[in-house]
Design a protein around this nucleic acid. Structure first.
Lengths: 202, 202, 202, 202
DNA sequence: GATGAATGAGGGTTCATTCAT
DNA sequence: CATGAATGAACCCTCATTCAT
């Protein structure tokens, strides 16, 4: 799929000057549109207009609308991975529950920062083909959790990793879509679910 | 939103005769299209053609394309609820783990019957406004689990219900999208996750 | 190139009813647009508008704008081939010059019927990939001339066929673009050019 | 049409310095693009990029994209006319067939030097309005042939000139598009066609 | 002069929906 | 009721051209 790659990779990623601002404006506008209109109402014309930019400019930086979504997802995953790594390192000394808990909190913080936008982006992520970097980022997250479980001698760590990530994903989505916003409350449930699941393995 | 309701409710749902067949043909065709082309490739013209029916007829029975998706989701939820009820009644004599396990198996069986289609329908469900009946069905499922937990004197049963459903949802989705198709294997992990979570509550 | 074929073959070719009229209207409008605006000014929106038809309808019958051009070219070649065959059969009794002359006249008549349109269509033909039928039609024309030359024992008849067709093509184009419209005058020059070329071969 | 003239005439045609190089780079890049992408893929942005020049600079020297094509056509015609004149002078002593033959060879050499590019440029020439100089160049070529025919007392020399040029044009195009690249072979056929046509006049 | 980001009109195509037959 | 041709708003994307720096 060489086409797909071209469609999801930004055309240019300028690090400075006018271009930088344009890209920033497009991404910000995109988030706003996504928030207000949802995935269905997300299209290049609206984004360009809200960004105060011409369609042409938009296409100068993004090969298509999917590329914008891909960029937003990528950024989200980048931030998340960075925070997960930080959380894991900060809590490295603790026992398994501490490390897992710290990582859960890091991830949860992301969701609660912009719950609706995150939800929409995860929707987008689910129906888009994933670009290479995002794939790598997700793989890294998986490896991060996997490493923790391995270091604590958990049996069949790959499966447990998948399940732990999945159950958190499910619970967080449900909590947020139910309108919950209490960090500690959700965190404690996630910890309970994961720790008990992991413990029950051995 | 009177519009939304009109858009998701079938104009009528004939129980017999040629009309019944037409509706059936449309729904079957829709599933096939969804399976082959995904949500993006799902559109009324294609569905009508595959169903061997004119677009006009399609609109005779469904007020719009979302209504077809809504109907498929509704049917899925109907079946599921029926099976959940049956599972719960059949295992009523057992302890909490038995009942929960039986319900998990019922739900899992649904997913494994047509994994990709189910996944696509759940996607659709997530981005569609939900019609009244589907809402009622989901509420009933919730009540069903809630009742079980209450009967076993679980603390804060509403939250636990939400979480149990959510973690199963998450884990099943992940397993299926990872290509897993082994019923017993997935079932045992779901049981472990839910039972341990519920037990840890008290 | 399966894509190319889809792009040049009409979606449906209705032989009766409303559809027939629509297709006819589109083709007629296309000729008018081509005549007034040239190839550059030829686009689906204009064609649809002039045809008194919606763009959607246009795309119901033609998979794209190139398909319309392809259809016009095809029709032109079909007519031409039919007349060439008729001319060849009618003059079969005569000597080589008679047959060639008759065929030249048939072809020339076509050009003079709508000189500018024909010129534009030949332009289109030159830059479009040719669909299967048009290819076959052109091949048949070639075979027709080739057969005549072979029956008269002309040496290297393939090359001569190509050259004879090509020189007529060139001379007719030039004459028409120079504004000439005198059938007999042009015909007599074409006959002189071809016959002398063919005779000089042996 | 003052517009047309402005659009086809280069803003200036510097004879030295950096500007000269820029213009040269643009023209060379244009030929490459034309060769690789065809007329349809020829656009100012691509040309500028390949020329290693900014679009702005391109517009400094050419008032629009058609002007670039016009310049390429003009250059081609200039070269051709020069070679035709040389050929005619070199063979002036010979008889009619010698002179015509020499001129045919000169022209054919041009086509075979870069057959595809030449074909594309002739296509462009056909759909572009012709600028004054190109018109003059073509007129000069016509006069050149006309002069030869007149000096040999050919009847109705204008018409014959037009026809001779046209039949060569047609035959060369056909030969080249058929993949022929054998200079002598094509030349001999062109000579046969022209000489016999001219001779048959009187 | 040179640059290249920005513009936006223009043109291609799809598809949900209507309506005359 | 069924049909399916017709509609046209909505989107996507390109590229000739301008203009602030």
């Amino acid at each position: 799929m060489p086409e797909n790659i071209k469609k999801l990779t930004p055309r240019r990623r300028p690090k400075q000057g006018r271009s930088r601002d344009t890209v920033e404006a497009i991404l910000t506008a995109s988030q706003q549109i996504l928030l207000r209109n949802g995935l269905k109402g997300f299209n290049t014309n609206v984004v360009a207009k809200r960004a105060g930019v011409s369609v042409g400019s938009l296409y100068q930086f993004f090969p298509g609308k999917e590329a914008i979504l891909a960029a937003l997802v990528r950024d989200m995953r980048r931030d998340m991975l960075a925070d997960l790594i930080a959380a894991q390192q900060a809590s490295n000394a603790g026992d398994l529950a501490d490390v897992i808990g710290a990582m859960i909190d890091a991830s949860l913080k992301h969701h609660l920062r912009a719950p609706e936008l995150t939800a929409t982006l995860e929707q987008a992520e689910a129906q888009l083909p994933m670009d290479a970097e995002t794939q790598a980022l997700k793989s890294n997250m998986f490896q991060l959790v996997l490493g923790v479980l391995q270091r604590h001698a958990i049996e069949d760590p790959e499966t447990v990793t998948q399940d732990v990530i999945a159950m958190c994903h499910g619970m967080v989505d449900a909590a947020i879509s139910a309108g919950e916003r209490d960090f500690d409350e959700i965190s404690s449930r996630l910890r309970r679910a994961t720790i008990n699941y992991i413990s029950a393995t051995n």
